[in-house]
Computed example of a mutant assay.
Amino acid sequence: MKRLSLLMFSWGLLITSLFCPVSAAWYQDKQGIMGTNIQVEVWSEDENLGHQATTAVMVEMERINQLMSPYIDSSELAILNQQAAQHPVKVSKELFDLIALSIQLSLETQGAFDITFASVGYLYDYRNHQKPSEQQVKSLLEAINFRHLQLNEQEQTVSFAHPKVKIDLGGIAKGHAVDNAIAILQAMGIQHALVTAGGDTRLLGDRRGKPWMVGIRDPRHEDKQAVILPLVNIALSTSGDYERYFEQDGQRYHHILSPQSGHSSYAVQSVSIIGPRSTLNDALSTAVFVLGVQQGMDLINRTPGYDGIIMDNQRKLHYSKDLTAQ
C-alpha cells in the first residue's frame, strides 16, 4: 500500500511538472542605453526563452542607438548632420522612413514637432548647465524648419537645404525602438511584456489576468505619481520638463524646445499620450507639450485612437475628451 502511495505521489509530481513548468516566471532586465533607462519585463514558461527575450530587447535598443544617436560620430544620423548640407546622403530605409514620418508629423502638428530643432538644440548642454546666447539662437533660428529637409525616395537620400540644419530624433526614436522591441517579442512567442525607454512604455497583453499599473510621474516630485493608470495591450509616452534640464537664475532650461523660439517651452510641465503605437505617442507628446493646453488638446481630440493627459504650468491636470467621458 505504501509503495502504491509513493507511485501515485510520483505520478502526481510528474503531471504537475508537465502542466506547471518550474521555469515559468517574469524575466527582467534594466540597462542604460540611448541616454536613458531601458527596462524590459516578460513572462515566459521557458527560462531560456525568457533570457533570450530580454537580451533581444537590449540588443535592439543598442542597434538603434548606434544608428540614430547624434552623439555617436559613426551613427547614420551623425554622418547625415555632418554631410547633408553639402550633398545628398544615402541612408538606410529605416532611417529614411523615420525622417519621412517626422516630416509628415511636422505638417500635421503645424511645425510643433520638428526634428530640425537640433539646429539650435545642439548648443544646450544640460549636464554642464550651458545654453546658447540670445545672439546664437537668433542666428540659427531660421535653420529650424522641417521644410529644409529634402528627401529623394527613389535614391533613398536626404539633404539639407540650409547650411546650418541639424536634426535630432530624440522625440521619436525611443518610441520607434520600443515598437521594434515589442515586435521582436511577439515574433518570439511572448504574450505578456512591458518595454520602457525613458518616458516611452508599451505593454504586450496584460499582467497575467490583471492590468498593468503604469504611473505618470509628478513633474516636481521624483518619488510621486501624478496619475496611475490600469492599462492593457497599449502604449503610453510622457514628455516632461524634468527629463533633461538645469536651473539658472530661477529659470528652468529643459530639452523640449519650441521650434518657433529656440527656447524651452513653458506652457505645461508634462504631457502623456496613450495610444497603440509608441512611435506616434512619442512624437505627439512632444508636439502637444510645445502647443500648450488648448491647441494640444485640440490635436489629441482630433487624432483617432489616441488620448492624452496634460499637467499645465499651474500643475492642473487636463484630460482628453474620451478619458473624461469614461
Rank of each mutant, 00 (worst) to 15 (best):
E108N: 12
I144E: 02
V59Y: 11
Q260L: 12
T324Y: 14
S272D: 10
L95V: 04
L280E: 03
A197L: 03
L169W: 00
S278V: 04
G262Y: 00
T116C: 05
R147K: 15
P304C: 08
S119K: 00
L257P: 01
T157Y: 10
S75W: 03
Y126H: 12
Q28G: 10
F96R: 03
D179T: 01
I64L: 13
H255L: 13
V40E: 05
P21S: 09
A112G: 07
I190N: 01
Q269M: 12
A177V: 04
R127H: 10
A173K: 00
Y266F: 10
R208Q: 15
N65D: 15
Q150C: 10
G292Y: 09
G209W: 10
K164D: 11
I33T: 03
T324I: 13
R277F: 05
A183P: 01
I274M: 06
P211C: 05
I184Y: 04
F117C: 10
G175E: 02
G32Q: 13
I103E: 02
M61S: 12
I15H: 12
R63K: 13
V59W: 08
I33D: 01
D29Q: 11
K2H: 15
G250E: 09
G170T: 02
V59G: 06
D179L: 02
D114E: 11
H318R: 09
I274Y: 07
L49Q: 12
F146L: 08
I234P: 07
P88E: 07
N180R: 15
T109P: 05
Q260H: 11
M58I: 07
L77Q: 00
G209R: 07
G170A: 10
D307C: 11
E47C: 14
I300R: 03
P132Y: 07
S239V: 02
A193L: 04
Q156C: 06
G250V: 05
P230H: 06
P70Y: 03
E41D: 13
E134I: 09
F9Y: 06
E45V: 06
L231F: 11
S270H: 06
G240H: 00
D249P: 02
P70A: 10
A287Y: 05
V288W: 02
H129L: 14
G199D: 02
A287I: 05
A193K: 01
D307H: 14
Q154P: 09
L299F: 09
P21N: 04
N281Q: 09
A118H: 13
Y126K: 00
H221F: 13
S75H: 08
E60I: 05
A325P: 11
Q110R: 14
G50L: 04
H129K: 08
M34H: 02
G240I: 02
V227A: 07
N301S: 09
N37T: 15
L6A: 09
R147T: 13
A84P: 02
F289I: 11
R277A: 11
I15N: 11
R217F: 01
L236D: 03
P259T: 04
I172M: 04
Q156Y: 01
K131R: 13
I99H: 02
H51T: 12
G121D: 09
L323T: 01
I228G: 07
G12H: 06
I33F: 08
L107M: 15
L4T: 15
K131T: 04
I172W: 00
L236K: 06
